[in-house]
Write a protein that binds this DNA or RNA. Structure first.
Lengths: 146, 146
DNA sequence: GTGAATTGAGTTGTGCGCAATCTAATTGTG
DNA sequence: CACAATTAGATTGCGCACAACTCAATTCAC
């Protein structure tokens, strides 16, 4: 038998599959809101505090302008956000919520419940998973820089 | 304070971030092999057993023909696989490894070690994370069907 | 056996995700 | 002040993901 790595032994593939499965569970709910999953993430950040610059959104989500610029244009076309050049620093673009964008927050409150219901894990297991994932992500990011 | 869901409370976002961070850690090694992460996953499946049909690869990885067809054409252009119509059932396309494809397995053996080294988790924690993720993925898939 | 239904791949279109590059605005240095 | 370096955002290009659709091969029902 070869010593080639086996698919099902790879934590990386387990992460990849779980992440895809989780967004698939969210998809029907998000469809009814007219959002994709990354668009939903951007709205989550803005619901916490706005306006935010493109840079701030990118830092919160780990996305660069190549991803965010067109995504934000689509959110603007949906009437959920507005993009305005900052006056203090004309390089910056502040992303503001519109009234429609703020109102969407109500409909989105039910979204994360779906995952908890479908997860088949106890609250304690979910919470432990969450904290392990956060530590893993932080460690991988710092390893990546070296 | 609003009851809008908070980004950092979402397990789904933790999965999404961890998955991206893990593939980012793999990227430099895979670059040196000339593979993307999904291409590496396909090669992993083929190193275990070949030939495999497009359908079988899709079942193993959770990908459909819309993703796999062009990906397999790129692997074929790289000289790593060959696509041959099955004789028993002309609808099927069997994916065979070339000699170059088989040889790549050696260079890839070091890939998963990178994650373990960078993870910052004990072997026990990694193993528990792995099993939790597999149960989560299974539960999410079965929830998705209903 | 023939037509309907199913199955296996491929194609098209949309939206990420990320590297690389570009431009304009700002900051830092002499 | 001038000019190099940095920063913010946008653009381009490529490769997934995934839905929707097409087409051909096979199977199923009668």
């Amino acid at each position: 038998m070869s010593d080639a790595p086996r698919l099902n032994h790879q934590v990386c593939f387990a992460l990849y599959s779980a992440s895809k499965a989780a967004t698939a569970v969210y998809r029907p709910v998000l469809d009814s809101l007219g959002l994709t999953y990354p668009q939903y993430l951007v709205m989550l950040v803005l619901w916490e505090e706005e306006p935010r610059t493109v840079r701030e959104l990118g830092a919160a989500l780990g996305l660069d302008s190549g991803t965010l610029s067109p995504l934000l244009k689509r959110l603007e076309a949906l009437g959920l956000v507005e993009r305005r050049r900052s006056q203090e620093d004309e390089r910056r673009v502040d992303i503001h919520l519109t009234d429609a964008g703020r109102e969407l927050s109500g409909g989105a409150a039910a979204v994360p419940k779906r995952l908890a219901d479908a997860a088949g894990l106890s609250a304690a297991e979910l919470s432990q998973l969450h904290s392990t994932l956060q530590r893993l992500t932080a460690a991988l990011h710092s390893a990546d820089k070296q």
